[in-house]
């Protein structure tokens, strides 16, 4: 089995593996769009088909796929790659030395702690939660009772009553709209709900909609709406079109 000739059928690429590698190296294929896992799956499928473990092929595949993964990882984190690439050997040595020094100090500090533990190992003491009594809050300075009473009286005044006048909603009777719609339907076989009630107040529109539902329940009309929030079209039941979607057919 020759890995380079492995036929791939991916979303981003179709063809042999070595062509894929060539395209990637020439920057003609964006690795970000490439599903590396799919390549691995394709290889595994081929491997199982042959029913024998081809170690050479596996090794080659591992090398190639890991190189591909590394390229892809670098591509996904471009800034970091640039940062590392920009380091001169001198700087790299300094950075490495700095990190090593930092770790070495902490390692020695750990050694110091270990020695300390051995020296202090024969100190025994009581450990446990500290059920300390809650701290006493400092008492307030004495106050003049008359002033306190005055302050309380100020707060004891009942607040002015809130007017609820605006809360009383006036609902026009549903019947009014039933009659209105019926008379409209006598003149026209169909109409647009929004156009018919567009000039009314919100409450009136709501009641008009109730009237609509009432008419629909009585079977006098059918209602159509192509999509949510689309215009609602009303038609007399006797002129209902068969090809349109209606509440009745639903």
């Amino acid at each position: 089995m020759i890995v380079r000739e492995l036929e791939l059928d991916l979303d981003a690429f179709e063809g042999p593996f070595d062509l894929l590698l060539t395209l990637v190296l020439k920057d003609e294929l964006d690795l970000v769009e490439l599903d590396v896992a799919a390549i691995v799956l394709a290889f595994l499928e081929r491997l199982f088909e042959r029913d024998e473990l081809d170690l050479d092929a596996c090794g080659e595949f591992l090398v190639l796929i890991s190189a591909l993964l590394e390229l892809k990882a670098r591509g996904l984190f471009p800034e970091e790659a640039a940062e590392l690439a920009e380091l001169e050997p001198e700087q790299a040595a300094e950075e490495l030395a700095r990190r090593l020094a930092e770790y070495r100090r902490m390692k020695e500090a750990a050694g110091w702690l270990r020695e300390r533990l051995e020296v202090e190992g024969d100190r025994y003491f009581r450990i446990g939660p500290a059920p300390l009594a809650p701290k006493v809050e400092p008492t307030l300075a004495p106050h003049d009772p008359a002033r306190l009473a005055a302050a309380l009286r100020l707060m004891a005044v009942p607040p002015p009553e809130v007017s609820l006048a605006h809360m009383a909603l006036r609902f026009p009777p549903v019947v009014q709209f039933l009659e209105r719609f019926r008379s409209v339907l006598k003149r026209r076989s169909r109409f647009d709900f929004d156009q018919e009630v567009g000039e009314l107040s919100r409450i009136e529109q709501a009641v008009a909609f109730l009237a609509l539902l009432e008419l629909r329940r009585e079977g006098e009309i059918s209602i159509e709406q192509a999509a949510p929030f689309a215009p609602i079209r009303i038609s007399r039941s006797d002129v209902e079109r068969e090809d349109s979607w209606t509440l009745r057919s639903a």
Binding site: P89, E90, A92, A93, E94, L96, A97, L100, A101, R104, R105, E108, A109, W112
Partner: peptide, 24 residues
């Protein structure tokens, strides 16, 4: 009471010198 960090890490300079020699 912990030892000062600056007093720890003996031999750090030696490592740094060796790394720089490699870099050169």
């Amino acid at each position: 009471e912990l030892p000062r960090l600056d007093d720890l890490g003996a031999g750090v300079d030696e490592i740094r010198d060796r790394l720089h020699a490699v870099a050169e």
